[in-house]
């Protein structure tokens, strides 16, 4: 152990009196010291044993084997054995080291002297002299035109960096991919669980369907990512047309719904959680992440929570066979807001 003692600088606070050192039993009694030695060695040996037991259980216990254990219930002993063995193997190295330090390593307090922070006057004077000679030799004072052009160059060189960095954040979406999804006019809606097209007349009032565009699954396999899914997922609900207060678009002849069947984006406009916590009697859609709540019977407007943009609606219709189809892409960007969107 080391202790810092103040010498000159602590005039108003005297150095604390050293604590009298007490000898431990292991310092006096050789038998106690030997016992502590054995204890430390036992912990290290047990650690090694548990490392071996880990391998033994990993090889020896059938991964599918299940048995009932108190408190936990039916579980797989392999997982328990691996966790306990590895945990104890690491822990016992630590406890052994601490026990060793507490009982056997020297515990006398040691004073470590520390030199002053300030340089000596002699060193300071020599530095000033060297610096002065350098200024003189370089001609920094004698040749003002060099001095002034250098200062000017130093003042201006950060400007290209600032201009470049400013432009980095100017348009986060040059390709417009945040504003488009794969929905196209005439594209069928299919359920997200069976990938079957949806017969509009088979949907009862109060129904909820998690849906995706027809062809998304094939596109996902082709692209090897979920980017299009993340933007195109929708929920389809049927609300009694008498309960629908407003929609985000459409005319009396060509409404955005189909007999009360409405399609909305499934991506929260706050920070983009997928949401389908739909309450069929209140027509509210709740986001479990931050409790933003949207009223699907009233243009998906925000009724509660941190979201500031309404939930975008997808205009839908039916094809000649009566299956739900999209009438185009979303009219406004889906998902969380970014810089170009005015709320």
């Amino acid at each position: 152990m080391s202790d810092v003692v103040h010498h000159e600088s602590s005039e108003n606070r005297p150095a604390p009196a050293p604590i009298p050192h007490e000898l431990r039993r292991t310092d006096i009694d050789a038998r106690a010291a030997r016992r502590a030695e054995r204890q430390v060695a036992t912990m290290f040996a047990l650690s090694a044993l548990f490392a071996v037991l880990f391998v033994v259980s990993f090889v020896g216990i059938d991964p599918e084997f299940e048995m009932g254990l108190p408190v936990i219930g039916t579980t797989r002993p392999l997982n328990i054995a691996m966790g306990v063995c590895m945990g104890l193997s690491i822990l016992l190295i630590g406890t052994g080291a601490i026990h060793w330090a507490r009982k056997l390593m020297p515990d006398v307090e040691v004073v470590e002297e520390r030199h002053d922070f300030a340089s000596s006057d002699e060193d300071k004077a020599r530095l000033a002299e060297t610096f002065g000679a350098g200024v003189e030799d370089s001609g920094f004072v004698k040749r003002p035109i060099i001095r002034r052009t250098l200062l000017g160059a130093m003042a201006l060189f950060p400007i290209p960096l600032v201009v470049m960095l400013r432009d980095l954040g100017h348009d986060p979406d040059p390709a417009g991919s945040l504003k488009r999804t794969m929905w196209r006019s005439g594209m069928r809606l299919v359920t997200d669980s069976t990938h079957e097209p949806i017969k509009a007349d088979a949907i009862p009032v109060g129904n909820l369907i998690n849906a995706i565009p027809d062809g998304l699954v094939e596109l996902e396999e082709e692209e090897g990512n979920l980017n299009e899914r993340a933007k195109a997922v929708i929920i389809v609900v049927r609300i009694d047309p008498a309960d629908i207060v407003s929609q985000q678009g459409g005319t009396a002849e060509e409404p955005w719904d189909y007999n009360g069947v409405l399609a909305y984006s499934k991506v929260c406009t706050h920070v983009g959680c997928p949401i389908s916590l739909y309450e069929q009697r209140t027509h509210h859609l709740l986001c479990p992440c931050h409790q933003s709540t949207f009223d699907l019977a009233d243009s998906g407007r925000v009724v509660f929570g941190p979201a500031v943009r309404r939930m975008p609606q997808l205009a839908i219709s039916v094809d000649s066979e009566g299956y739900l189809i999209a009438r185009g892409d979303f009219a406004e960007p889906i998902g969380p807001s970014f810089w170009e969107i005015a709320q």
Binding site: T191, V205, G206, L208, I209, Q280
Partner: peptide
Amino acid sequence: NMPIFSDETL
């Protein structure tokens, strides 16, 4: 408030 999951859609 649970929505319906009809036999046609599920």
